[in-house]
């Protein structure tokens, strides 16, 4: 659905999405890298389960939610892609989990 501009440069940054190896570019946000890699669905809604993908790309719509390196519900459009990131589909609502020894 999306193509990179021909003048886009930036060093390649490898990452995984749901275990699949992918490559983005330096300067990409997580959401931009996913869209450029042809991924248009990155989460399912917490209430209806409907599929969603990045939309506003500016932190407002929350449709770009993904799990990044184990942290759930991160807004992909606000997080810069880093080499080796393990990104996963955000499936519905995550569990609230206590920090070690907090209770």
């Amino acid at each position: 659905m999306f193509r990179r501009l021909p003048e886009a440069t930036g060093a390649p940054i490898p990452f995984t999405f749901d275990g699949r190896e992918m490559v983005g570019r330096r300067g990409d946000t997580v959401a931009a890298a996913l869209l450029a890699a042809g991924i248009s669905v990155c989460r399912t809604m917490a209430v209806s389960g409907a599929p969603r993908g990045p939309y506003c790309m500016m932190g407002v719509c929350f449709d770009c939610l993904v799990t990044i390196d184990g942290a759930a519900n991160r807004q992909g459009c606000l997080v810069l892609l880093v080499e080796g990131m393990r990104i996963k589909t955000q499936a519905g609502a995550p569990q609230a989990q206590a920090e070690e020894g907090a209770t």
Partner: peptide, 10 residues
């Protein structure tokens, strides 16, 4: 509820 500590405020 300590498990709230890690939640994002929207």
């Amino acid at each position: 509820f300590p498990l709230l500590a890690k939640l994002n405020v929207v």
